[in-house]
Write a protein that binds this DNA or RNA. Structure first.
Lengths: 195, 195
DNA sequence: CATTTAACTGAACGCCTGTTCATTTGCCAA
DNA sequence: TTGGCAAATGAACAGGCGTTCAGTTAAATG
C-alpha cells in the first residue's frame, strides 16, 4: 500500500511538526531519529521529506516559528505609558506566552547548539530583539528615575533568565495558577529594579 | 601497535573525562560519539572502556561529580548569622562556584533528559538539596522579618534560575569582572526579597 | 468515469553507532 | 634480564542513521 485513507498535506504537515516538537523537547534533537518522528505521525520516514528538506530545517522551523510568534505577540502588546506599567506588561506577557508553550521554550533554549551556523545566527538575532524590548523598558525607567539598577544589560539578562526558568519547573497540574505565578514574579521583578 | 609511550591510567582517565565534558557541553550527549571522545584523548574507542563501563555512566559521573563538588563546597561556607548575610554568602558562592565551570553547568542542566531514570533520580535529589539550602535561608529571613516574598518556593526557583542563567551568557573575556557581576546580582537578589 | 496528481511505501544507499574481545605492546617489579 | 600485568589496538558485531527514489495508491479534477 502507499497513500493512506484521508491523508492530506494539510493534516500530515502539522502532525509532523507537532510530533517533532514533542519528541525533540522530550529527548533532544540528536537523540530523535526521523524514523521515530515518522512512527509518531503514522507514516514511513521517507514521507517526512514531503514536509521538510532535511532534519536540520525541521528543527530550525520549529525554533523560528516560536521566536516569530513571540515577537509578533509582543508587538501587539501596548508599549506606551510609564516604564513601571510597561515592565509589568512585559512580565505578564512573558509568563502568559511561555507557560502554555513548554515544549517550544524547551526546544528553543536547549537546541541552539544543534543549529548550523547560519540558522543559529537567525534565531540568535530574533532572541536579541526580544531581549532588547526589555532593555528598552529598563532604560526608560532609569530615565524616569523610577528604576535603579547597577547594570542595565546584566539586569535584562537576569530578569529574562528568571522568567524563562519558570518553564523548567512549572506544572499545569501543580499548586499554583497562572495568575498567582504572574503576581509572584511581578513582585520579584518590580522590587528588584525599582529605585 | 597497542600501548603507547607514557600512557597510564592516571593520565588517560582524567583526559577521558575532560574530553567528554568539553565535547558534551559543546555538542550535547547524544550528538557526541565515543569515537569522537576517544579521538580527542588520542586513543581508540575501545580504550575508553577501561575508564567507564558505558557512555551513560560517563555522563552520570560528570554530572554527579559536579553536583557533589557543589554541595561539598557549599558545606564549607559559613551558614551562621543573620539571613541577609547568609543570602549574600549564597549568592556570592553560587556565582564564584559556577562562573569558572561553564561546561559543567551546561552539561548538568542540559543533559538531565539523557540520564536514565535511576541516574536522573540521583542527580535530581542532589539538585534539590542545593535548592533547599537557599529556601532555608529565605524562610529564616521571613522569620526574622527582613525578607518578604509572596511565595518562598517560587522565589527560590526564581533566584536560582536568575543566578544560573548567568553561565549562559557570561564571557570571561567580556566587559565585566567576576566581582562586578557578583555585586550586580547581589543588588538584584537583595532588593527582590527584602521587606 | 477516466486521468492526473499528491501522498506515501519500502527498499536501498553508505556511513556511523556503542560495545566486545583477542591480541599486541610497553612499563614496572623481581 | 625476565616475566607479569596494565593499557592500549583494531577488527568485528548487530543495528540504527539521514536521505533518496522508483513504484504504488488514494484523492482531486475534468
Amino acid at each position: 500500500m502507499a497513500r493512506k485513507q484521508g491523508s492530506h498535506s494539510d493534516i500530515t504537515g502539522p502532525k509532523v511538526r507537532e510530533a517533532a516538537l514533542r519528541l525533540i523537547a522530550r529527548h533532544g534533537y540528536a537523540a530523535v531519529s526521523m524514523r521515530q518522528i515518522a512512527a509518531e505521525v503514522g507514516v514511513q520516514a521517507g514521507a517526512l521529506y514531503n514536509y521538510t528538506p532535511d532534519k536540520q530545517s525541521l528543527l530550525f522551523d520549529l525554533m523560528h516559528d516560536h521566536m516569530s510568534a513571540l515577537l509578533a505577540a509582543w508587538s501587539n502588546v501596548d508599549t506606551a505609558g510609564p516604564a513601571l506599567l510597561r515592565l509589568q506588561a512585559f512580565t505578564g506577557f512573558h509568563i502568559r506566552f511561555h507557560l502554555p508553550r513548554a515544549d517550544q521554550v524547551f526546544v528553543s533554549y536547549m537546541e541552539l547548539r544543534n543549529l548550523n551556523p547560519e540558522n543559529f545566527a537567525v534565531i540568535e538575532s530574533l532572541r536579541h530583539r526580544y531581549e532588547d524590548a526589555l532593555e528598552d523598558i529598563l532604560r526608560a525607567g532609569e530615565a524616569e528615575g523610577v528604576f535603579a539598577v547597577a547594570d542595565t544589560r546584566v539586569t535584562t539578562m537576569a530578569v529574562i533568565a528568571m522568567l524563562t526558568g519558570l518553564s523548567n519547573w512549572y506544572r499545569h497540574d501543580g499548586r499554583l495558577e497562572t495568575d498567582v505565578i504572574e503576581a509572584i514574579y511581578w513582585d520579584l521583578v518590580r522590587k528588584a529594579v525599582t529605585a
